[in-house]
Amino acid sequence: MKFKKHLSLLFILIIVAVLSACSNTSASEKIYNHLEKAVELEEEFEKQQDKIVKLEKKEQNIYSKIIDLSMDDFDKIKKLSDKALKSIEKRAEKIEMEKESIHASKEEFIKIKDLIDQLENKQAKDTAEKMFSVMMERYNAYDKLYQAYSKSLERETKLYKMLQKKDLKQETLSNHIKKLNNSYEKVIDANKTFNSRTAEYNELKEKFYKQADIKVEYEDNASSKDKNNK
């Protein structure tokens, strides 16, 4: 009976030791795990980039063909417009996939907030706080980019539907194209902000890893990714 009690006590001690070892994982290591998980969750965002750019080029080619045609080629204009509309639908789907990826990354990233206060190294803590702030600005910048891009998609859709009307007036078309170009300018501005925050965040993350003595091997240009070349 005593043997069984000692055995039970030993088993309990082993469990306590294991739990203690898990809880002893440093705050910096936990932060590292969340940061790298956030990167993994953005892989879908990364994958959609080239696909979106290809669709954009395809639509630009279609538009170039349309403006070279006259109203005598209305049937061709209509067919080309249909192709453009289908391409826009695909792009809209990919933008939604991109957004979901970014938002999943954000949910993972914000888990480091409470861990930052647990850092003992003051330099690493200060850098982590800046890193957190910049990354949140990056997520906000993406939301603005998403909104601007979605608006441009709406106006592109309207453009190609307008081109399918025989009674379309030149003035109406010109006014809409001005609005569309304005949308593109907003996308470009939002994209620049997003890219700037991405570069700033990556620099701070690399700095944090060095200060927290976390050994990380970077691939070429991996620490300064510049995405969303819309």
Rank of each mutant, 00 (worst) to 15 (best):
residue 213 D to P: 00
residue 186 K to A: 11
residue 117 D to M: 07
residue 5 K to E: 13
residue 140 N to M: 06
residue 93 E to F: 07
residue 179 K to M: 13
residue 134 V to D: 08
residue 197 R to L: 07
residue 105 S to Q: 09
residue 208 F to N: 04
residue 26 S to R: 03
residue 68 D to P: 00
residue 95 I to L: 15
residue 165 K to V: 09
residue 230 K to I: 15
residue 77 I to A: 01
residue 230 K to D: 14
residue 26 S to A: 09
residue 154 E to K: 15
residue 195 N to L: 10
residue 31 I to G: 02
residue 62 I to N: 00
residue 48 Q to M: 10
residue 185 E to L: 09
residue 112 I to F: 01
residue 92 A to R: 10
residue 132 F to M: 06
residue 207 K to S: 09
residue 85 L to G: 04
residue 197 R to M: 11
residue 129 E to I: 14
residue 93 E to Y: 08
residue 145 L to T: 10
residue 102 I to H: 03
residue 23 S to G: 05
residue 188 I to S: 13
residue 86 K to V: 10
residue 23 S to A: 10
residue 178 K to Y: 14
residue 86 K to M: 09
residue 203 E to L: 12
residue 8 S to M: 15
residue 219 E to T: 12
residue 85 L to A: 04
residue 55 L to Q: 01
residue 128 A to Q: 02
residue 189 D to P: 01
residue 104 A to W: 02
residue 70 S to Y: 02
residue 59 E to C: 00
residue 18 V to C: 05
residue 13 L to K: 05
residue 27 A to R: 02
residue 26 S to L: 02
residue 102 I to L: 06
residue 6 H to E: 12
residue 174 S to N: 14
residue 133 S to W: 08
residue 36 E to L: 05
residue 123 Q to W: 06
residue 29 E to K: 11
residue 129 E to Q: 13
residue 229 N to V: 11
residue 67 I to L: 05
residue 185 E to Q: 15
residue 42 E to W: 04
residue 222 A to S: 14
residue 134 V to A: 05
residue 48 Q to K: 10
residue 25 T to D: 02
residue 124 A to H: 05
residue 178 K to D: 15
residue 184 Y to D: 10
residue 203 E to W: 02
residue 13 L to N: 06
residue 166 K to N: 04
residue 100 E to V: 14
residue 223 S to T: 12
residue 211 Q to I: 03
residue 44 E to A: 13
residue 48 Q to H: 04
residue 72 D to E: 13
residue 128 A to M: 05
